[in-house]
Design a protein around this nucleic acid. Structure first.
Lengths: 173, 173
DNA sequence: ATAAAATGAGTGATTAATCACTTTTAAATC
DNA sequence: GATTTAAAAGTGATTAATCACTCATTTTAT
């Protein structure tokens, strides 16, 4: 991975996350990364190839989180870790999550694997905790996590810690 | 409002919601609406003017909901009405809500008024219900509503009614 | 010396927007 | 009620700009 390759990835991620994939021109990426436009296509073949490279790079971090989850054996501890995740994602991953969530509304191709993984984990947890309707609980909590991610990415509420406290209390973990 | 004007608005809303504003060409809108491309600019001046016209048109429905909310005097009844809203929005408004939520990730210009209106209503409700931290509760419930809207618009879960039941039970309304 | 990295002018296609022009609508005049 | 008239509705060819992408050439690193 060349230095210029990394600069292209970083700048492209930032612009895709800020203005959207379709609204971002490869010429703009090249200009802001301080490289020639041709270099983007030399390394990543196409604009979509550049997007895929960004997503693959970011997915490593997601998988790291997922595998860290499975270290918790106690279902309550696992639930708490899932609840905390949206409030403590690393600042350097801000652009990546913004891109992921903005892509959800177009391009159904990408993503999805993430949501289903977490949904299955939650289903197992709520079954272990003997909730009356584990399926509805899991689906609802996926929605709550998505909504919390939206809040953190779009509004960055100053009372985020209090929100987490309320959430943790509601689930008693 | 001419018939062709309405066709332009309808087709543009559908395409903007499906593929995103930036990714939708005015030539495509004209073709699918069965009108000349020039007519779009005659009536709406620019592509952004067309977007604004769509949003103004749709905002009327939102205001209708908001004023209907204020008819409830009992805070529990108001809370329940707010919780139910994402599960029962009219199917004909599907494209409108998809556009609203996809625009949140780009173009901060638009929207916002909606979220703050509902946040203030929730703040009042949780104060009346003497919740320990009304502000955090309100912010969290805004997030839950946004997440539920995401689920309804993107995944359309078949157990939506069960999700609502769980939610209603959690808030005891 | 050679292969990979990098350039930037150039490609055709597509974009939003404009233009001169024709058709339709509807009220005003006879 | 027919005729005139002017504004509004509608067209489609055309514009300049921008788009993703290519390629012959130069620079850099080993």
């Amino acid at each position: 991975m060349t230095e210029k390759q990394e600069r292209i990835l970083t700048v492209a991620l930032e612009l895709f996350a800020q203005q959207g994939y379709a609204a971002t021109a490869t010429s703009r990426i090249a200009r802001e990364a301080g490289v020639s436009e041709g270099l983007i296509f030399r390394h990543f073949e196409s604009k979509e190839g550049l997007l895929k490279a960004i997503l693959e790079y970011g997915n490593k971090e997601v998988n790291t989180f997922n595998s860290r989850l499975s270290t918790y054996t106690d279902p309550r501890a696992r639930l708490r870790a899932i609840l905390e995740a949206p409030f403590y994602f690393e600042p350097q991953q801000y652009h990546f999550w913004r891109l992921i969530y903005s892509l959800k509304w177009q391009m159904e191709t990408y993503d999805n694997s993430m949501s289903t993984t977490i949904k299955e984990a939650l289903l197992e947890i709520f079954e272990q905790l003997a909730y009356p309707d584990p399926n509805a609980e899991a689906e609802l909590l996926v929605a709550i996590i998505d909504g919390t991610m939206m809040a953190m990415l779009l509004r960055q509420p100053e009372n985020a810690r209090d929100m987490l406290a309320v959430l943790v209390q509601k689930y008693g973990v």
